[in-house]
């Protein structure tokens, strides 16, 4: 049943232009990262600081810095924004009435939505990653970034959490504005927790903020396994809670 609904969700996100728009946006990010890395020194040179500063030549590290900055500061919020209405839009439009009165389980609705979000998070980020990786390897063939794939994997794991946040927020709210506010609120909570340095190995946020460490030092990833477990666990928990709440909602 979840598979049937997953196909329906896939068709929905494609035909309502959500997925195509996100695909273009994430490829744009993929290209912008190496471009910014390349152009930043040029731009600085043209400014009046020229000659006063000695500028190091850009490296692959600059390109990857841009990548994680773009995803964690913009990409994630665009993703949340586009999919903020994934549950409450269907509730407000009553589109589930026909399906539920045919015996469709409400749990399947929620879990299929979590899966489609996770699937899109994985594919969009992977696409952006591949584009950046390709250009970076071409323009900055240096050895400053030895573990690009390893550094990227935690970002994929974060998708479990992001998908859970969106499904949960969209279930407990009535509009996509409210939903987006809850999502942002949850991110703020993570940032506040992050102020306590000792939580760094447990905070899901680390999976999108510590990637440059992972990129350069393979061993550092291992320290973050609690954060990865918590990320997956929280994602599943939020979705489970959403399904319990959704079970008693008026459609």
């Amino acid at each position: 049943m979840i598979l049937i609904l997953f196909k329906k969700e896939l068709r929905e996100t494609w035909r309502t232009w959500k997925l195509p728009i996100m695909l273009i946006v994430f490829v744009i990010f993929g290209i912008m990262n190496p471009l910014m890395a390349k152009l930043t020194p040029e731009i600085l040179k043209m400014s009046n600081l020229a000659g006063k500063l000695s500028l190091p030549a850009p490296t692959s590290l600059d390109s990857w810095t841009q990548f994680y900055k773009n995803i964690s500061q913009i990409g994630i919020y665009l993703f949340m924004m586009i999919f903020a209405g994934i549950v409450n839009h269907e509730v407000s439009q009553h589109t589930l009435v026909n399906l539920v009165t045919k015996g469709l389980s409400r749990n399947a609705v929620i879990w299929s939505k979590w899966l489609i979000l996770l699937g899109q998070w994985l594919s969009l980020n992977s696409l952006s990653f591949l584009v950046t990786w390709g250009y970076t390897a071409f323009y900055f063939p240096d050895n400053h970034s030895p573990h690009p794939v390893l550094a990227f994997l935690p970002l994929l794991i974060l998708g479990c959490f992001i998908a859970g946040v969106i499904v949960f927020a969209s279930t407990i709210t009535r509009s996509n504005y409210q939903s987006l506010l809850i999502e942002i609120f949850m991110m703020i909570v993570l940032y506040l927790i992050n102020l306590f340095k000792q939580t760094v190995h447990y905070n899901p946020l680390s999976l999108m903020s510590k990637n440059l460490d992972f990129l350069q030092r393979q061993n550092s990833v291992a320290d973050y396994w609690p954060a990865m477990l918590i990320t997956v666990g929280l994602g599943l928990l939020l979705t489970f809670l959403a399904s319990r709440i959704f079970a008693h909602q008026r459609l």
Partner: peptide, 29 residues
Amino acid sequence: NRFTGYLPDVPAFYNYLTPREYLKLCAQI
């Protein structure tokens, strides 16, 4: 609800599907 068929006063559908696709989805469910 496996025994029931329901026609609401204002039935709501997925606007991005064709009628055949919509019924296919219902049939699978």
